[in-house]
Each structure stands twice: as structure tokens, then as C-alpha cells.
């Protein structure tokens, strides 16, 4: 059955790591679409004036959301780099012969960008939290406090 052979053994994406990356791309894609809708709503509140907009933004200004933001940054970055990898496999003649190398290069680029960026996001959070909060605020306060005491 030549047709069935073609269906079951062909396909650029066959292979352990690349198959997981295919699933990873879908999961991050769906998650990012969900976040996009949330983000459009929270930004749309700006039409209702400074009080409403900044009241909504205050929900995001704690360490729990900082961790979530780092996750969001990682998801966008990983989806983007994996997308570039997919384009390379699709359009480069020898792309499918060098899948392992391309996977490894993608991972190295991701770590190289993600680690310093997320480090900066953590350091900047504590710098600004301690600077803006009332005197006597500790690092622990900045970690556990759900709503900032400044505007």
C-alpha cells in the first residue's frame, strides 16, 4: 500500500525532539492567544480614564505577576525562536537533515536571551519596589504583598 506508507513514514516532523517541539508550539500558541485577549481587555480600560486603568494595572504590580510575566516573556521568545526553526526546516533544502543541530541552536539562542532578560526583570522588580514603597519596606514585603502601597 504505497499511499499508506507515504502517510505513515513521511513527514518532516517525525522524531522525538521535533515532535515534542510541535506540541510545544501548539500549547504556547494557544496560551499566548488566550493572554492576547486578556491583554486587549486590560489595555482597552485606558479609555475609561486614569483611575480605572491604573486600578486595573495595580493588580499586575506584585511578585506573583512578575513571575507570570517572566513566563510570558519565555513563552513569546520560545514560540518565536521555534517558529524561526520551523521556517528554516521548511525553506532550507537541507533543513530536515540538520534537525538535531537546529534544535540545539534554538535552545542555545533561547537560553542566551532568556536568562539575562529574566535576571534583569527580577532585579528591576526589587529595585523599583524598594524605591517606590514607603520607608521600612523589606524584600520579603515586596515578594508577598499582593497590591503595591504606591501609585
Amino acid at each position: 500500500m504505497p499511499n499508506q506508507k507515504l502517510v505513515s513514514s513521511g513527514g518532516i516532523y517525525k522524531g522525538k525532539t521535533s515532535m515534542w517541539l510541535y506540541i510545544f508550539h501548539r500549547v504556547t500558541g494557544v496560551a499566548l492567544f488566550g493572554y492576547l485577549l486578556l491583554h486587549i481587555i486590560s489595555t482597552a480600560l485606558i479609555l475609561l480614564g486614569p483611575e480605572v486603568y491604573e486600578g486595573a494595572e495595580a493588580i499586575y504590580k506584585n511578585f506573583y505577576f512578575r513571575v507570570a510575566e517572566i513566563g510570558l516573556f519565555g513563552a513569546v521568545l520560545a514560540h518565536a525562536i521555534n517558529g524561526l526553526r520551523i521556517i528554516t526546516v521548511d525553506l532550507w533544502k537541507k533543513g530536515s537533515d540538520y534537525q538535531k543541530q537546529l534544535n540545539l541552536i534554538s535552545l542555545v539562542i533561547f537560553i542566551g536571551v532568556f536568562v539575562p532578560s529574566s535576571y534583569r526583570m527580577v532585579v528591576s522588580y526589587f529595585d523599583l519596589c524598594l524605591e517606590k514603597s514607603s520607608p521600612g519596606t523589606t524584600v520579603t514585603d515586596c515578594i508577598i504583598r499582593p497590591i503595591p502601597d504606591w501609585k
Binding site: G49, P50, L72, V76, A80, M121, L128
Partner: peptide, 20 residues
């Protein structure tokens, strides 16, 4: 656009400074 937006809002600026 999207990765640029993330860098501008989260790395070069900080969302703690985000206001009206």
C-alpha cells in the same frame, strides 16, 4: 513586533512604571 514589544515593555522599561 511581539518580541520587540516584550523587550520594550519588560526589559528596557519595567511594567511597575506602567501608568496612564
Amino acid at each position: 513586533l511581539a518580541v520587540g514589544h516584550m523587550f520594550i515593555m519588560h526589559v528596557f522599561n519595567d511594567t511597575l512604571n506602567l501608568d496612564y
